[in-house]
Each structure stands twice: as C-alpha cells, then as structure tokens.
Design a protein around this nucleic acid. Structure first.
Lengths: 263, 263
DNA sequence: CAGTGGTCTAGACCACACT
DNA sequence: GTGTGGTCTAGACCACTGC
C-alpha cells in the first residue's frame, strides 16, 4: 500500500509531500484514511446519528493534514455514509432522519410529494423463522439451510394496500426480531435495524420486472388476478458490501409510480 | 453574488483569501467558475469529446488558483458533464463512448452483462412530424400544437423484440431528423443528437409502471395481449434543465430486468 | 466567544500519457 | 522530457452554530 499508516511519523518527516512516496501499486493517503474511517464506522466506534471527531482531531490522530482528512470525509459523505453540517460537525448517517426518510423507497404518489400521504400503514402478515432456500442463501451469502427470518407485510397509503413485501434476514444477526417490534416501531424499518441490531444499510441493488398478480398476492393487494405489478427484488448491503437483507416487493402502480433519476 | 468575476483583478490583489469576501448571499468562487464552465459548455465552446483547457490555463483565464478550478471541474465531473483522464486532460462527456454506452438504458439481460448480447437491432416503425398534445407540450415545455417529431421504434436483442419506444422531440431543434438517419447511425441515439443537432442529454427522469400489453403494442413486442410490461416514461434534459426529449418505453421483462442501484 | 466545517491560495511532488 | 491531472501540505480567512 505504499506509505504505511502504521509508521505514521514518516509521513511528517520530510515535508508536504511525505505521503506520496513512489510505490508499485499506488494508494493515495486519503484513501487509506477513508479505509480507517470506514473501519471505525464498521466497528461501531461512532454510531448512526453521532458526531465523529473534528477534521483537525482526525488529522492529528492519523498524522496527516486536515485537507487529506477532508478529502476522505468528502468521499464518505458523497456515498451517504457521513453527513456534514457546517458549524456543528460531521455525523454518521442514519435512516432515522426526515430528510432521507425515503431514500430507498422510490415509489411515489402520482400527484403530490413523497410522504405527502402521511406515514404508510404497515400490516405485518407474518414473521417467522425458517431455513434459507438456495436462492435466498445466494443473495445473503449464506449456506442453503441456514436460519433466516422471513417477514411478510403490506404497506397501505390512504387505506389502499399498495406494497406487498417479503423480507429475508439472516437470523443470526437479527435474533429477537418479532412481528410486534416491527409493527410498533415508529419510523423506517432500516432505522430499527440500526438501533436494535446495529446494522446500517449502506446501499442496495434493485431488479425490477413487470409481473401479473397471482399466488395470493392479488388478494393481499386487493387487485384483480393478473393485474400487472411492479416486482422489485432488492439486496441491501451494510459496510464492506456485506448483504444483509433480501427483499421482494410487489408494487401497485395505479396511483403510484417508481421514480428514478438518471445522470 | 459577492466577488465579481467581472472584476477579477480584485481576487488577486490581497492574497490567498481574496475570493472569500463577506457577502449577503454567499456564493463560493468555485461555484461561479463552475457556472462559467457550464456557460462555455452550453454555448459549445468545447464540444462533446473534445478536451477543455488545462486546469492551469483555466486558472489563468479566470484569475483564480488551480485548486479553485479543480473543485469546479470536480463537481462537473461528478455530474458526468466532464470526464477527467490523468495525464491527458479533461474532456467534455459524450454518449459516444463505450464506457458509458448504456448509461441511460437500465434494462439488462438476466444473465450476462449489459451489452453482452451485442448491439440491439433497431427497427424504426415510424418517424413523422406532428403537433404536440397537451401532455407532450407540458413535458417538453412547449405550447400545445407546437411542431414535434414523433418516432416509434422497436429494439430487439438476439432477435427478440424487447423494447418498444415512442419518442417525442421538439421539431425546431431536431429539424431534418429522418427515419433513415436514425436507422443508419451506428451508436447510441443520444450520440447522434450530439453530432447532428448539437444537443447533449445531461440527465433524465424516469417514471416506471407495470402495464398490460395492449393497443397494438402486444403485436410489435410479440407477446400475448395483457402481458405485463414495464412502462418507462422518460424526460431527458440538456444543460440548464431544458427538457429536450419525451420518451415512452415498454419493456419486456421475461429475459431482461430494469437494474437500479440505490445509495 | 470558540469550535466546526467550508473556501481559497500557493507550492511541491507523484502518476500517467505522449513525444 | 514535457504537460496533464492527482495528491499532499500549510496557512489564512469565511460562514455557521451554540455556549
């Protein structure tokens, strides 16, 4: 990795360019700092919602200049892992915030703004412990047969059932999750995961298809059999690209649509 | 806006902090530089694919430090308007590049990578001049009845018709576009727009729904009537958020899916 | 007021590409 | 070698927050 942060004194010994020694496979200092910050986040040194040390403090801790720390933080902020607030500090991002409440839910009402319908009504249909199928195991990087929690729920807006979701979670990590806790918790499900299970979802991948309503889903969503639904398969990841949730959603799109911005 | 770039000499007169004079509504210098770069892009001073002047040259031109220019370019690069290549220079982004060939097409085959099926076969069903409906006019910021070009085409992968698209373009800007030119052009349609009509698409918004195949679309896509299709309504924008294209696509999702990454 | 993040500058050197 | 973007540092000052 070039300039070792295990011997940080070297970085200050020879001047402004100390961190940029020539190497075979070059890794910028700020990337290494970013990695260290990531470790601290992963290990829970700073928890979601908390402030992290100031740029100056971190610079002193890692024996680099403030600008280098800044660049590392900039990237983490761009990835939505940290949140900067001028005059206050830099905070660990959390799903329990109004601003980013719907960051992972791209289904919005055709008229009005996201959330304008008020909070969704959540009905937990079931929450049970089961064994991972081959497909679930592959998605969650488990072995087939490993224990998983399976949750089925319906989200309704203005009284209309709109989203049916099946969620699979590794039972080892989400030990103690029950239908009651899911139903009673106020706020995003991912915020509950943060506070109760110390799991922060960082990014997700979604595969979207159009499928006819069948297999009992038409009843739960109160649509005619065969009605086209949006099938949204999501894998959500924590730090270090570790998959932590598989979610299969069926969205009604008669009054809502999936909104995506390309750039 | 604070420090005026119309009187740039002031910025160098008093030292390192010259650009950060206190103001009522504060606008950082690099944001102003970004605006100037955006103007040059919009006015076509540098065309897609071309190099822009070096950071040092731009710094001299705008009478600011290289670091300030760098930050402006960084943001434009993050928005995919510019492309940096170490050792070579900074280039105006273009849709005519292998790397970003499919930046706006999120439909990928279930197995294999995007583009692994080779180039799509494009059949232009029609290309005609018509008048904007109220809906089209609203999307393209035109007046109802204004002249628009309407294109209908089918994209096929490995011989299977997979995407049916209706495209609406303001006729004033796309004067001279014909089915022949669309069919004969090798490469992304947006690359043709760049070279032939000097229109560069910068971002787009998509609204996605599940809808049954009907109205003749089932025949063009060779599916049974009522087959669920992904309906993708896209508005694409050039610089300054000017809408330049309305596109309504219907995607078969039996062998492909719409891939989206959330973060 | 002190402390935080945010901006700007200046200079040095590195990595990469072309000649 | 020369020129490009990329990294790192150091120091100054600005804008915002809260004591």
């Amino acid at each position: 990795m070039s300039t070792s942060l295990l011997a940080p004194a070297e970085n200050l010994a020879v001047g402004p360019d100390a961190g940029a020694l020539p190497t075979a496979s070059f890794s910028p200092l700020y990337q290494q700092i970013k990695g260290l910050l990531l470790s601290s986040l992963r290990l829970g040194e700073w928890k979601p919602g908390e402030v992290i040390p100031s740029e100056m403090d971190l610079a002193a801790r890692f024996r680099v200049s403030q600008g280098t720390v800044r660049k590392a933080i900039d990237e983490l902020a761009a990835e939505n892992l940290l949140m900067r607030r001028q005059g206050k500090g830099t905070f660990v991002a959390t799903h329990a915030e109004q601003q980013v409440q719907f960051r992972f839910l791209k289904l919005v009402p055709d008229s009005g703004t996201p959330g304008s319908e008020g909070p969704a009504q959540r009905d937990i249909i079931e929450c049970r412990r089961t064994r991972a199928s081959a497909e679930v195991a592959r998605a969650l990087a488990l072995r087939a047969g490993d224990a998983v929690l399976q949750v089925r729920r319906v989200l309704s807006f203005l009284g209309t059932p709109t989203i049916l979701e099946d969620i699979w979670l590794p039972a080892a990590t989400f030990k103690g999750l029950t239908a009651e806790r899911l139903a009673n918790y106020q706020g995003p499900t991912y915020a509950l995961f943060e506070t109760e299970f110390n799991v922060r979802m960082v990014r997700a991948e979604e595969k979207i298809r159009a499928e006819p309503a069948r297999g009992g889903r038409e009843q739960l969503l109160k649509v005619a059999p065969g009605t086209p639904l949006l099938s949204v398969e999501r894998i959500a990841y924590t730090y270090n690209d570790v998959p932590m949730e598989l979610r299969r959603g069926f969205y009604r799109t008669d009054t809502h649509h999936y909104q995506n911005n390309l750039s």
